[in-house]
Design a protein around this nucleic acid. Sequence first.
DNA 1: CGAACCGTTGATAGTATTCAAACCTTGTGG
DNA 2: CCACAAGGTTTGAATACTATCAACGGTTCG
Lengths: 276, 276
Amino acid sequence: MHLGIDLDQGPLWLIEIKLLKIRANPKAGHLMTSLAACAGPEASSCQHGRSANGCDDCKVRLFSVCGALASSELDELDRISQVRTFAPKATLFEQDALAGSVFNVTEGVVRLCKSLPDGRRQIVGFALAGDFLGLALMDRYSVAAEAVTEVRACRFTRSAFLAYVDDRPHLLRRLHEFAGHELSLAQDQMLLLGRKTAEEKVAAFLLNLQARYGRIGTTSVNVPLPMSRQDIADYLGLAIETVSRTLTKLVRKKALVIVPDGVRLLSVTALEQLAA
Amino acid sequence: MHLGIDLDQGPLWLIEIKLLKIRANPKAGHLMTSLAACAGPEASSCQHGRSANGCDDCKVRLFSVCGALASSELDELDRISQVRTFAPKATLFEQDALAGSVFNVTEGVVRLCKSLPDGRRQIVGFALAGDFLGLALMDRYSVAAEAVTEVRACRFTRSAFLAYVDDRPHLLRRLHEFAGHELSLAQDQMLLLGRKTAEEKVAAFLLNLQARYGRIGTTSVNVPLPMSRQDIADYLGLAIETVSRTLTKLVRKKALVIVPDGVRLLSVTALEQLAA
DNA sequence: CGAACCGTTGATAGTATTCAAACCTTGTGG
DNA sequence: CCACAAGGTTTGAATACTATCAACGGTTCG
């Protein structure tokens, strides 16, 4: 066995699994959550968000809305943007509040929540690196956005961003493409919420997350779960206990193992069948 | 009591309700389904869709995406569009098919469905007059569209429409606004599907539909339900029996009465409380 | 060390589904 | 005109899946 080389195979975890319940190597846990945003094996040198050079060497640009912009246009985008960081549980914006800003997530995970007066909560999505918040450009936020992990994001005032977009139809076009994609994901989620069983929901959730990580970084059978079980439950329309029970059921079926801060998928094909 | 004058109060139904189970006047039923698209009392002279004059006197233009266009632009829109009608249960397009066309519904009701391999179905939305199908402008349809009632729609080939849009950023802007609204509705629906009880789902559905009818025609406590109970069930993530039972429960609570082809809301405030 | 939080597991309850049958409406054909 | 078939709706009884309530184990942090 080769140690510390193949990130994708997560050897540190393998060791932990075999040693049974030995305290997790904290570095391993960190590596897993980092996977969401980092591509390639040199995780230590991974720097997301804008550096001193601004958007030019932004790691998320190519798969984000900014990918529609020419290098010359990025300079002005730089000028109207500011990098902001949010601690876990911090609020980026609240449901129904006036939309003063829009954000482009460059690092970390954000949950998008809707709540009922009595406290019931539905998470309508998780935003990862490259995702744009406030895509609809509406004057009020329809959801709340809360940092799950430490989050880094480019912030624009909505008015400045609108002015910027108005001069650039190709960017609007790109925004619209992203909105269309979001809408399609929302429809998939409606199918999941309305018609799938708990097991199908959890399996589909894990596969989905894996695919999303793959699009922004390394494809791996290690799927970090930076969000809490309660978050997952509120995303899938389940009770927290049902999420927990279903995960252990999937473990018994040998479809996955639970590792610190996430899961390792043992049989993607089994999960795909379970996900319906 | 005044007969045949006040459409909004639906006097014909009142009579029927009081006579208890007397066979419904077929005209009354027809009036109700027409309410979805007709504003004002002269339902008989109501003509939706493009007439010989094209888009200019289209009844849905002002609250549809076309509302962003100047009169001069409508001429060219006319040229690339064709009016099409669909019989109930006809398919406008199928899930995952190449998106060859986009549609603007001018009359009738369309259901947007997603299905699982085993037949389970989720309706992700009902399109009414003024709604645009294919808003996302993606190259494949993410849902199937099926006529619930007789449907009239303006059809555009996707390529022609894309070319038309490319020359008109203000139309793209309007399309994006509509997409943002759709996304917001989808998020509301996720909250409903994931976190609401059967009673809350049904109450919210009826109030929502009433509000939508109000936006495109006459606000009325009469809410036509042209779709089947199965359709409602598949929209709300319930079994057909649960929808039926919940409706009769709402009748027992005196929140509404069931009339041919729809319901009449007796207490909107009661329903609003039940909808959470 | 204890409090707080998160996750897991067990027992129980409840809501919605499933299965089944009856009812109603509509359309067809004798 | 009535009988009958077909499709949709409603109602009833039993089941099942998931939620709720409760307790416990593990980790973190002061």
